Amino acid sequence: MIRMLLFPLFLAGMAAADPGNDILDAHVLPGFDRLEAQTQALSAMADAECDTASAPLRGAFADAVKAWTTVSHLRFGPSEAENRGFALAFWPDNRGMTPKVLMGLILARDQAVSDSTAFAQVSIAARGLYALEYLLFDDRIATAGTAEYRCALIRAIAADGARLAGDMATDWHDRYAALMRSPGPGGTYQSEAEVLQEFFKALRTGLQMTAELRLGRPLGTYDKPRSLRAEMWRSGLSLDLIRASLGSQRELALLLAKEDTDLQMELAAKFDLALETASRIDDPTLVGVANPSGRVRIEALQQRVNEIREAVAKDLGPKLGVSAGFNSLDGD
């Protein structure tokens, strides 16, 4: 209800500039600035207090993860360069590599943790936010080796993550935003339509991630639910990240639809229904997929997200004059 009351104000405040610039200024650049700030705060907290059970450290970790989630659908350009996005957020880990590589580092007391350049060459399975979750919340990893080495590893991962986020933010501000603001012959983008298609693909990528990965992986099948495949279940963030992703995808969708008030209202209503459905789920780690009453609520949320996906494909794409094309999840 609150969102719908505020929606006319959102419309009234939107500039007459082209949608690509609006998306950069209201969605992309603030999102990566926030990610940079939160990962820097996490690194500073790790330097000050690296006990795996530290509440302030865990809180800073949660803030950084949520900041990443709000830009995780923007998997092109600065996120794609040098595999920065994968290094910061290696998920899903279908082969269970993260705990194996982390344990190898801990048992060997690998000194890459003492050199940022060397650590940047470590397997991405042992870098980034998802590796840090194991160190802070997994009983086996969080007690392996010595406290001294675990502390050094936590600090190395946090500092590396802050560097990656900083590089992405800098790349957006100093280079990539300009490429999208000035499309033309010989450029990365030949026209404004190509810019919009990139953002449209990003929206579809985000919705696909939410429906098929964040919800679909733990849902598994009725006979074989897979709650331990939920994103960030160890830290209890699974449902929070679904809500964060939907909120960010909502923002992008409404910016893309800015020139059609009716379509904006349609998309806003569908996103708000999904967010309301999520708000009625009291299951932070989605463990309820294993029982009928919990499962039906999570399936209902997935259905709401799929309804958004259908509306985006059927109504928003044609309105923008763009096609879905391939996204970074196709073929995975």
Rank of each mutant, 00 (worst) to 15 (best):
F137W: 14
G166A: 03
Q121P: 03
P185H: 10
E192T: 11
A162L: 10
F119P: 01
I106A: 07
S123G: 07
G145N: 03
D138Q: 12
D167S: 13
W172Q: 03
I154C: 05
D93L: 13
G186N: 08
V122F: 02
A178W: 15
R109G: 09
A162G: 12
D174Y: 05
A156K: 03
L196Y: 09
Y176P: 01
L136T: 00
Y130E: 09
A126N: 05
S114G: 14
K100M: 14
R109F: 00
D160V: 06
R155C: 02
D160R: 01
V122I: 10
R95Y: 14
Y134G: 02
G166H: 07
A87S: 12
A144K: 03
L102I: 07
Y189C: 01
G161N: 13
T143K: 12
R109P: 03
L107D: 09
G161Q: 15
I124M: 09
A165L: 04
L135R: 02
S116W: 00
A126G: 01
Q111F: 07
Y130A: 08
Q121I: 05
I141T: 14
G128Q: 04
L135N: 04
L129A: 09
V113K: 01
L136I: 02
D115L: 09
R181M: 15
Q111M: 14
A162P: 00
R163D: 09
P99V: 05
G128N: 06
D139W: 05
G161K: 04
Q197W: 07
I157L: 05
R140E: 08
G145F: 00
V195R: 08
L105A: 07
L136N: 04
